[in-house]
Computed example of a mutant assay.
Amino acid sequence: MPRPQRWGAAELERLSAMVTQPSLFYWRGPQTTALLDEFRRRYPLNFCFPTSSGTAALHVAIAALRLKPGDEVIVPAITDMGSVIGILYQQAVPVFADLEPQTYNLDPADVCRRITAKTRALMPVHLAGNPCDMSALMAIAREHRLQVIEDCAQAWGARWRGQPVGLQGNLACFSFNDYKHVSCGDGGLVATNQLELGTGLGKWGDKFYDRETGGRDPLELAPNYRMSEPQAAVAAAQLTKLEQIVANRHRAGTRLTEQLAGAAGLRLPSVQTADTHSYWFYLLRLDRERLAVSRDEFAQALTNAGVSCTPGYIPRPVYRYPVFQQHNFFSGHWPVRELGLTQMDYRQVRCPEAEAILEDSVKLTINEAMDDAYIDEVAAVVRDVARAAAR
């Protein structure tokens, strides 16, 4: 499998400049300033705070909403734990909604079914870089007066109706984790254009200190999620490469879909024609009724033929993780439930489509170093395995 050279001269140049600085602290540091400038060139969001991780960015966003204990946030059943950690730490309640079968994103119809009097926010996750149906989700949010946090961790460079994802909701969160499109090892960023959320955004990730006035007399409780100047230096350099990285991944993913179209036994990811999928990975589903092998056997056959893949994505929907099944969030306790502020029982939650996706999907590796010839070879192997496995 071709592998990209992810870091090089651009990162070294910024790091070399960084080591001559008198301080590596983020506040108004030259590397952090450069990072925010590069980010805003691509995402016109006025208020930005760089964080130590994408998970931290999401926690800051949740904290900025000032949720009360027992308030509910609707999230997709297939996502990373980072999407829900901040919700739980703020004593709010993740409410899992089902997914659309071919986009793997929040199903607006099921979101509506999950709304209660305690619902305060939605968290669409643009899974693998495929934009959610933001038109439908924002309409729901307006109708029910809900805040929207876009989890863009897997969706650098993705576009909804021609606009970068992250510009439709109230807050947008990004990740610079080592495995994302652009990376500084670990890091994140949370941003908004809303004055009432943005003016205090930095406080929620910086112990509620007021860096503008120099105040170290916090009014509220907030964690320390600051990014450092070395991280910012690498992340700023990485963002200068974003357009080419996404263009290559989009070309590879689109070509793979074109090459696999019509192959018996395969269900391919669906992308709206006006949207741009940035393909953090490529998830296809198997039509088990048309194939004589299991999902794991299909994936093993691909692996044996040299295709980089894994059976499924995450092992099970998030609500079926042991921590949720046992409500073991704080040393064996869940205070909001024990205090009667929620009746949520994750042992009773079911999202049938999400469960089906994780049972019959195969995740194919996509990266920006893959040329057309390589993608065509992968597609040929997938078609051959499907043909051999047909009933």
Results as ranks from 00 to 15, higher is better:
133 D>Y: 04
134 M>K: 00
135 S>L: 11
136 A>V: 01
137 L>T: 09
138 M>C: 12
138 M>E: 11
141 A>T: 06
142 R>Q: 15
142 R>Y: 11
142 R>H: 15
143 E>C: 09
143 E>W: 01
144 H>Y: 12
144 H>T: 06
145 R>K: 12
145 R>T: 12
146 L>M: 03
147 Q>W: 15
148 V>W: 06
148 V>S: 04
149 I>K: 03
151 D>Y: 06
151 D>W: 07
152 C>N: 08
153 A>F: 01
153 A>G: 11
153 A>K: 02
153 A>T: 08
154 Q>K: 06
156 W>T: 00
157 G>V: 02
157 G>C: 03
158 A>I: 02
159 R>P: 07
159 R>Y: 09
160 W>L: 07
161 R>Y: 04
162 G>M: 10
163 Q>F: 04
164 P>A: 02
164 P>Y: 00
165 V>E: 02
169 G>W: 02
169 G>P: 05
170 N>Q: 13
171 L>I: 15
171 L>N: 01
172 A>I: 07
172 A>K: 03
175 S>I: 03
179 Y>N: 11
180 K>L: 11
182 V>T: 08
182 V>I: 14
184 C>W: 01
185 G>T: 04
186 D>C: 07
186 D>L: 08
187 G>E: 05
188 G>D: 00
188 G>H: 02
188 G>Q: 01
189 L>E: 02
190 V>K: 02
191 A>D: 00
192 T>L: 05
192 T>K: 03
193 N>W: 04
194 Q>A: 09
194 Q>T: 13
195 L>P: 03
196 E>H: 12
196 E>R: 08
196 E>A: 11
197 L>H: 09
197 L>C: 04
198 G>M: 04
198 G>Y: 06
199 T>L: 13
199 T>E: 13
199 T>R: 14
200 G>V: 10
200 G>R: 14
201 L>Q: 06
201 L>W: 08
201 L>G: 05
202 G>K: 00
202 G>M: 11
202 G>N: 12
203 K>Q: 12
203 K>L: 14
203 K>H: 13
204 W>F: 13
207 K>G: 05
208 F>S: 11
208 F>A: 12
208 F>W: 14
209 Y>K: 06
209 Y>G: 01
209 Y>L: 11
210 D>L: 03
211 R>C: 05
211 R>E: 06
212 E>D: 14
212 E>V: 15
212 E>A: 15
213 T>V: 09
213 T>M: 13
214 G>D: 10
214 G>R: 04
215 G>F: 10
216 R>F: 11
216 R>S: 08
217 D>T: 14
217 D>F: 15
217 D>H: 15
218 P>Y: 05
220 E>V: 10
220 E>N: 14
220 E>S: 13
221 L>Y: 15
224 N>H: 14
227 M>H: 05
227 M>T: 08
